[in-house]
Design a protein around this nucleic acid. Structure first.
Length: 612
RNA sequence: CGGGAUGUAGCUCAGUUGGGUUGAGAGUUGCCGCUUUGGAAGCGGAAGGUCGUAGGUUCAAAUCCUACCAUCCCGACCA
């Protein structure tokens, strides 16, 4: 491609709308333009990058035995009602764009495709003889994100590869999952990214095991905990570890003590001269279930530990049936305004005890025993105790009276141990690892660009997707699903590799391999040599741009650096010796090559760079 | 949805505190001309703005008031 006919508009300054380097650079270099919040146009250079990424994904998926297809983005509400996700995905904090067509039918724009694919499987897969099947597509997804961010990192419209596998049984599904795991490693490696596969929470998608593929970058939204021996890596949401050992309690007898102005664990421990590991901290959450029911959750946990809200939410989802709900749609620490809505009297904040009285909650208006109406507040605290707090003896905790704590308390004596013992503690950097206590957790930040799930039969059962096994029995299909954020992956590459002058694309996903720059377009010899190189390179399969704009050399060098083409060929001063300069964008290394060597040399370099 | 901020030329921003013919302005991009030709060079010229939108206050509003809209940042969601 010659530069004049190609739409290339570069910006001299960072656009005000961008915050992180990759977003700034993609805008400055003319790869993307914002059309609305979280909605971007992929301009010609960007589209080539996305095609390159897609092609790598396609090759690896095909190699792993998956087949490409294309599913509808416009989807009927009925399918989502069948799976039970319509309400949670379109109402409240839901992320699905929903609309009503001219026949008053409810439709949604696909945020994901479990429902559609399962409906197809239900129709088409009848026999074990057809299994396993793994279908994938590369397509635009729509998600009405609560907060779109950072350009393509979190858009409301973005390109994703999603795959769905169907197996006869758990073992088959696990095998497919392993193949996908390998394919994902291949995809990321070939895309030239530094990454880590980590244990992950399954979130709203559901299912059992799942792994995320994290591209390592400071701007990443996720925290990863891992051990140096390489045997453990997990998203902090999912991570497990050994807590520090508790210090023996200095308290010997149970008593209430005046502790003025100690509404934080830190102040209290200083005042009482004890370790936070001798304290039972009681944290209040408010959870809203999908039927509108609000439940106040009191979590008792060891004072030095923090609650992992993802784990807590998972525990609450398990209890949903107790409240005639199916899932949790919001989980927050209630602020003053939120407390006012349900609190009968001011809470002893900072001094709450595990047995905080239920009378702090306003009784329901008509005062029925059970709250049935939507939006009701359950008039009893849901009391949970984290494992770390269970074994404590002679601990200190709140007294339910501001300015006073109880010390030397024990479960079963001063306080009743809550019935539900859970693991909701947050693993943190420095904790000892479970698999080997001599290993401590280290931290890194990552961008989640892939996630693979073992779904099991959640959707196939909901939608009645069954097959007949060898014994002639009907069995639900065992599913897996596997996503790659194609557009996010592309931006992550920029986040991971750039310098002050611009983008440094990995060769495998760069929009072009090489750019021929003519410093002086008035020099016929330079122009002739450049035109010839440009033609020969392209014919030889080296994807090449030609910049023969009537600009000063500096402008063209700056632009070439900014857009990040891996190899720059300059028909400059050494042309009189029959040589051109070839510059490596990443290393800045420059060498002069005789004209005839240019094509084979670049072919060799590119092949070497791509064959990782 | 809660909290914070912003909205003035294609882009980055002054001007708003204290309303006023001292000009709606600077840099940059794009356009024209000259000059220049190895890291966004120089000189000159012309062009480019419903000052986010709609009301209101006032003799007078980019500036004060109200509402709305949009965008960005911090939390919950996720590829």
């Amino acid at each position: 491609m010659r530069l004049p006919p190609m739409l290339l508009v570069t910006l001299r300054e960072d656009p005000a709308e961008a915050e992180i380097p990759s977003h700034k650079l993609l805008l400055r270099a003319g790869y993307i333009r914002r059309i609305a919040s979280g909605v971007y146009a992929y301009l010609p250079l960007m589209w080539r990058v996305l095609q390159k990424v897609s092609q790598i994904v396609r090759e690896e998926m095909n190699a792993a035995g998956a087949q490409e297809c294309l599913l509808p983005q416009l989807q009927p509400a009925e399918l989502w009602q069948e799976s039970g996700r319509w309400e949670t995905y379109t109402k409240a904090e839901g992320i699905m764009f929903a609309l009503i067509d001219r026949q008053q039918r409810e439709m949604g724009l696909g945020p994901t495709h479990e429902e559609v694919i399962t409906a197809i499987a239900r129709d088409m897969i009848r026999s074990y003889r057809q299994l396993p099947v793994n279908l994938y597509q590369i397509q635009t997804k729509f998600r009405d994100e609560i907060r779109p961010r950072f350009g393509l990192m979190r858009g409301r419209e973005f390109i994703m590869k999603d795959a769905y596998s169907f197996d006869a049984d758990e073992a088959g599904m696990k095998l497919t999952y392993q193949k996908m795991n390998q394919a994902y490693h291949n995809i990321l490696r070939r895309s030239g990214l530094k990454f880590r596969a980590v244990d992950a929470d399954s979130g709203a998608i559901g299912g059992s095991g799942s792994q995320e593929f994290m591209v390592l970058a400071e701007a990443g939204e996720d925290e990863i905990l891992y051990t140096a021996d390489g045997k453990y890596a997990a998203n902090v949401e999912k991570a497990v570890s050994l807590p520090a050992d508790a210090v023996p309690s200095p308290f010997t007898t149970a008593e209430k003590r005046e502790t003025p102005g100690t509404d934080t664990i830190e102040k209290m421990c200083k005042f009482l001269q004890c370790s936070p590991t001798c304290v039972v901290k009681n944290v209040l959450y408010q959870a809203v279930y999908d039927n509108g029911m609000m439940v106040l959750v009191l979590v008792s946990i060891r004072g030095d530990q923090d609650v992992n809200e993802v784990k807590l939410q998972n525990e609450l989802v398990k209890l949903a049936a107790d409240y005639r709900a199916t899932t949790v749609i919001a989980l927050t620490v209630p602020d003053a305004a939120a407390q006012e809505k349900w609190a009968a009297k001011p809470l002893p904040l900072g001094y709450m005890a595990p047995d905080l009285a239920d009378s702090y909650i306003k009784p329901p208006k008509p005062a029925p025993v059970e709250v049935k109406a939507a939006g009701g507040v359950v008039p009893k605290f849901l009391r949970l105790v984290d494992q770390t707090a269970v074994a404590l003896q002679n601990f200190a905790t709140g007294s339910d009276e501001a300015g006073y704590h109880v010390v030397g308390a024990n479960w079963g004596q001063e306080f009743k141990l809550p019935d539900r013992v859970v693991d909701v503690r947050k693993a943190t950097v420095g904790d000892r690892a479970l698999h080997d206590a001599s290993q401590t957790l280290q931290t890194a930040r990552g961008i989640e660009i892939g996630h693979i799930f073992q779904l099991g039969t959640k959707y196939s059962q909901a939608l009645g997707a069954t097959y007949t096994n060898e014994q002639g029995e009907d069995r639900p299909l065992v599913m897996g699903c596997y996503g790659v954020g194609v557009s996010r992956l592309a931006q992550s590459a920029v986040e991971q590799a750039h310098d002050k002058d611009g983008i440094i694309w990995p060769v495998s996903i760069a929009p072009y391999h090489a750019i021929v720059v003519v410093p002086n377009v008035a020099d016929a010899e330079q122009m002739q040599a450049a035109a010839q190189l440009y033609t020969e390179l392209n014919q030889a399969g080296v994807e090449t741009l030609l910049d023969d704009r009537n600009e000063r050399a500096g402008v063209k060098f700056k632009d070439a650096d900014l857009i990040g083409i891996p190899y720059r060929i300059v028909t400059g001063k050494s042309l009189k010796d029959g040589k051109v300069e070839v510059v490596n964008r990443a290393t800045r290394e420059m060498q002069e090559l005789p004209l005839v060597y240019v094509v084979p040399t670049l072919q060799e370099w590119i092949a070497a760079a791509i064959a990782v």
